[in-house]
């Protein structure tokens, strides 16, 4: 389990430190922008466009329907993949967490699948699903399903037994035990799993688009490279990075919110 919990734990902090943190964050952002500018300058714009140029290009790009078309294709595939991963992973994790034996049998298999380079399996997905939306979604699910499952499974296993006993004492039925006791108790871990599955589903969908697809941001990225359209590639990377970081920050906040409510 600890294999997947990668991020450093951000401890709660007093208010006075917030100012310093904001300053630090500003400095780090400025440094990253400076690095970007530097690399862009040093290579004379053959590989990366500097920040300002990228933003200018992006401002034009968002006015074209082409961009929204590709963005929409990626978002659609991603939304379906993430929804399937979340619901399926939650159900599977609850099931395996409650059936101890099945959980013991399945956990190493899932963890093994998690560390395997799944890109190599993409041709199989393409051959089975055909080109198009379903292949991207299937690939996204392959990446995103396992983290939610493993996190939910782990959370249920480490659940204090007193909670289950209390539920029994209160004569809650199975469904109530699940929805009123288990899921709320495991919520912080589940949110964590969802956060990781979020980024991995996105990765899966993007890789799918990069390899063999006619639509989506991943396709736009690769076609930008093929046409030597440097501003286009840089803009797409920028959009994906900003979107991913924002979503992740939001979910980190959400996770801290759920764990604070004891």
């Amino acid at each position: 389990m600890s294999e997947i919990a990668l991020e450093p734990t951000l401890a709660a902090e007093p208010r006075s430190r917030r100012g310093i943190r904001a300053l630090d964050l500003a400095i780090v952002t400025a440094l990253l922008l400076a690095l970007w500018q530097l690399v862009g300058r040093a290579t004379g714009g053959i590989a990366i466009t500097p920040p300002l140029g990228t933003l200018a290009y992006l401002a034009d790009l968002v006015q074209t329907s082409l961009f929204w078309d590709h963005l929409g294709a990626t978002l659609l595939a991603f939304a379906i993949a993430f929804a399937i991963s979340a619901v399926g992973g939650l159900a599977l994790g609850l099931l395996l967490g409650l059936r101890r034996f099945a959980g013991d049998v399945a956990e190493p298999i899932l963890a093994g699948f998690y560390t395997v380079p799944k890109v190599t399996l993409y041709p199989v997905v393409l051959l089975v699903c055909g080109l198009g939306l379903s292949a991207k979604v299937a690939f996204g699910v392959m990446h995103g399903l396992v983290p939610v499952t493993l996190f939910t499974l782990g959370a249920i296993r480490t659940l204090p037994p007193v909670l289950v006993r209390t539920a029994r004492a209160m004569r809650l039925d199975g469904w109530q035990t699940m929805s009123r006791v288990m899921v709320p108790a495991c919520l912080p871990d589940i949110v964590n799993g969802l956060r990781i599955s979020f980024s991995l589903s996105l990765l899966g969908v993007l890789i799918g688009e990069m390899f063999s697809s006619q639509r989506g941001l991943g396709f736009l990225l690769v076609s930008g490279l093929a046409q030597h359209n440097v501003p286009l590639t840089t803009s797409v990377v920028f959009v994906v990075v900003v979107g991913a970081v924002l979503a992740n920050t939001l979910m980190l906040r959400l996770g801290r919110g759920t764990s604070g409510r004891e």
Binding site: L6, L10, I196, L225, N248
Partner: peptide, 16 residues
Amino acid sequence: LLASYYAVPTFIFYPL
């Protein structure tokens, strides 16, 4: 930075 690093699919930097 570390907390959100793995949220970004590192792979998209490959074309760059």
